[in-house]
Design a protein around this nucleic acid. Structure first.
Length: 431
RNA sequence: GGAGAGGUGGCAGAGUGGUCGAAUGCACUCGCUUGGAAAGCGAGCAUACCGCAAGGUAUCGGGAGUUCGAAUCUCCCCCUCUCCGCCA
């Protein structure tokens, strides 16, 4: 949520950000108008309340309270009527402002390049050479089915489309990937949390997933619980309603969770394979940090995610998302796209690293004090995948496939997997 | 699911109808003291909103009510804890 003070102080900055996102900026004037009305109504109401409080206090001070109360009752009753009338407006206006502001995306960082869509994202850097194959590389779903380590058919039988069942070496490899990510996260200073996969409506709202994205999430309305679309939600909201001390910052958390998404808007896209599933695993990295460190720490977080791809020897490129492609919560986002050799080759998103500035912290009410006497300030929240586990699995399968259909594991995964080859018959082999 | 207890400032914990935004302790900040430190002493120390300011308004889990007046009384809801039941 934006600070309404920012709209008062610098409305043009908010308008410009909205325009750069390709969105209507008319809400700025609407909110400012409501705000003006609200303040006038509030001042009037508070004056009446002050008047009443003064009368009440005089009763408390009177020698004979009963007599004083009887004497002042008509005056107070008259004030009560005016107060009741004056009190009706502010909450209504507050709700109107909150409803508008709650659906306004974060203000973009100045360094975000202009653009109209994902084609305008900027390639910042590339790492690694895509491997030259002396055979036609297969897509991972073919590899997985041939090896007998991914079973889409039976998953569809159990749950429908966009589900998969990993088996044997496949699920062991997935577990190794997650273990590798968590191990590196620990080395990079992240504290691992085992978090709930179901969270309340309030929590979802406080990290910006609601109310705009309710359609994208699985939920149980009977208990008002939502299945997390990413561990960003519980990790970011972990310190909800807390006032932290500056010495604690920056805080770094990571978690390996399943994630659940309806993918309602992606009908017909990526219908084959592991790319787009209703349920997938991810290791998420989250920072809480002071404003002045926000962008530097975003670079650190991104470097941590990139380091994983480098250790795995997976070629990737780092994209700076353009103004139209930056998500609702984010002020600035880097996407990491991993090289997939199948289908002629191409880059696919495997991590998205964002600074949400104080946008989520304001919704979550997460603050800190610079020193004992300082006023609490909102922290900045950063998040990024480190990395998407399912997509890493398919990237490993495709990039490390052999002509015979077997897979050579990248060296970094071997200690976590306990094997270094998936043989052509699907068996895990330690050579 | 049943029964009970409880939710007060950064923390602990008083407060059961008025002068209570809230005792006290801890933590923290500043000062005195000291060669320095500890102890001791003194002062300060919740949040949000409105206002140039003085100041005002609201907030004791959330909401509604009683009352001239509610942290305190009533009702509803939420959460936590304990015991019982059930269960991976």
């Amino acid at each position: 949520m934006l600070d309404i003070a920012l709209l008062r102080r610098d409305p043009e900055r908010v308008r410009e950000s909205a325009r750069r996102r390709g969105q209507d900026s008319a809400f700025v004037d609407r909110v400012l108008e409501l705000d003006e009305t609200r303040r006038r109504a509030l001042t009037a109401l508070e004056a009446l309340k002050a008047e009443k409080n003064a009368l009440t206090a005089s009763i408390a001070r009177a020698a004979d309270r009963g007599a004083a109360a009887r004497e002042l009752r008509p005056q107070i009753a008259a004030l009560d009527a005016r107060i009741e009338e004056a009190a009706s407006a502010p909450p209504v206006i507050d709700a109107q402002i909150a409803a508008i502001l709650g659906d306004v995306p974060n203000v973009l960082d100045p360094s975000v390049p202009p653009g109209a869509g994902s084609d305008d994202n900027v390639v910042l850097r590339s790492w690694g050479e895509p491997r030259a194959f002396d055979f036609v590389p297969k897509p991972h779903w073919e590899l997985g089915e041939t090896l007998g380590i991914i079973d889409f058919e039976r998953a569809a039988k159990l749950s429908g489309s966009r589900f998969s069942i990993l088996k044997g070496a496949g699920v062991r490899l997935q577990r190794a990937i997650a273990g590798f990510f968590l191990d590196r996260a620990a080395h990079n200073g992240y504290t691992e949390l085992g978090v709930p996969y179901l969270v309340s409506r309030t929590t979802m709202w406080s990290t910006g997933q609601l109310s705009k994205f309710a359609d994208a999430m699985f939920s149980d309305p009977s208990v008002e619980m939502f299945m997390i679309p990413t561990a960003e939600v519980p990790l970011t909201a972990y310190h909800k309603d807390e006032i932290l001390t500056a010495a604690l910052l920056p805080l770094q958390y990571c978690s390996h969770t399943a994630c659940f998404r309806k993918e309602a808007g992606a009908a017909g896209k990526d219908t084959r394979g592991l790319i787009r599933q209703h349920q997938f695993e991810k290791v998420e990295l989250v920072w809480l940090t002071p404003a002045e460190r926000s962008l530097d720490d975003l670079d650190r977080l991104t470097a941590h995610a990139e380091g994983l791809l480098q250790e795995l020897g997976l070629p990737y490129r780092t994209m700076l998302l353009c103004s139209a492609d930056v998500g609702f919560n984010s002020a600035k986002t880097f996407d990491l796209e991993v090289w997939l050799p199948s289908d002629g080759g191409g880059y696919r998103e495997i991590s998205s690293c964002s600074s949400c500035t104080d946008f989520q912290a304001r919704r979550s009410n997460i603050r800190f004090r610079r020193d004992a006497k300082a006023k609490p300030e909102f922290v900045h929240t950063l998040n990024g995948s480190g990395l998407a586990v399912g997509r890493t699995l398919l990237a490993v399968l495709e990039n490390y496939q052999r002509a015979d259909g077997g897979i050579d594991l990248p060296a970094a995964l071997v200690p976590f997997a306990g094997f270094d080859v998936i043989a052509a018959d699907g068996s895990a082999v330690r050579s």
